[in-house]
């Protein structure tokens, strides 16, 4: 399993764009929103938590289809399925690799981009924490979507259609934490709910992902 993780990380670095692409997309998105709504900092400060959360979510989505598609193309997926690794473990490691290459950089970069959107002072910590808690769930949910559509030739759009509604609860609670944090309000309830959703997703969804992956390999 560790071998699989290091291989995936190595490939992400060598293939280029593994780490950088999602971040660049995130930056462009934030800039585009600023161009769209105007430079007024009071307005930007109000919508910053939401924009950063939606941006992180879309940047996450961008690299999902690579999770299994490349391994499927070169036959590695068949070989992994016959290897002495449980399928649930494989999808979890894949999700972890996706989170390290996409989610983690976004979490680290988000406060910087918050600066550009004049996010109010107390918001940074909560933005960082909410993304840190929420993005693993995004990766795991995305892995499920990727496993569902791995056999399809043009699965990318379909995968977005399937995955995005699944992101709704995480987005709502995550953005709520960031928004309340920025407004100096109590964040306890949404933070706990966000953590709960992430934990439950991490614990249960790999079984569904493994099941659909097995179906798709038939």
């Amino acid at each position: 399993m560790i071998a699989l993780l290091t291989r995936d990380l190595k490939l992400a670095v060598r293939a280029g764009g593994g780490f950088g692409l999602g971040l660049a997309f995130f930056l462009i998105l934030v800039a585009l929103v600023a161009f769209g709504v105007g430079p007024e900092s009071a307005l930007l400060a109000r919508i910053a938590p939401g924009i950063l959360w939606v941006g992180a979510l879309l940047a996450c989505l961008l690299s999902l289809d690579r999770i299994f598609a490349l391994d499927r193309e070169d036959g590695s997926l068949d070989l992994l399925a016959t290897a002495p690794l449980p399928m649930e473990g494989i999808v979890t490691v894949k999700a972890l690799a996706h989170w390290i290459t996409t989610g983690l950089p976004l979490v680290v970069a988000a406060p910087l981009l918050g600066l550009m959107l004049s996010l109010p002072g107390p918001g940074y910590l909560w933005l960082f924490l909410s993304l840190l808690l929420g993005t693993p769930a995004l990766s795991v949910l995305g892995t499920f979507g990727a496993a569902l559509t791995v056999g399809l030739k043009r699965g990318g759009l379909l995968m977005s259609l399937i995955v995005l509604p699944l992101y709704v609860p995480t987005l709502i609670f995550g953005a709520e934490v960031a928004r309340r944090g920025a407004g100096g309000l109590s964040v306890e309830v949404p933070l706990l709910l966000l953590a709960g959703i992430t934990c439950a997703t991490l614990a249960l969804l790999p079984f569904a992902s493994a099941a659909v992956l097995r179906v798709n390999l038939r």
């Binding site: 709704v168 609860p169 609670f173 709520e176 949404p190």
Partner: peptide
């Protein structure tokens, strides 16, 4: 989950 999240 979404239904409860949206209510929240």
């Amino acid at each position: 989950l979404s239904r409860y999240a949206v209510h929240f």
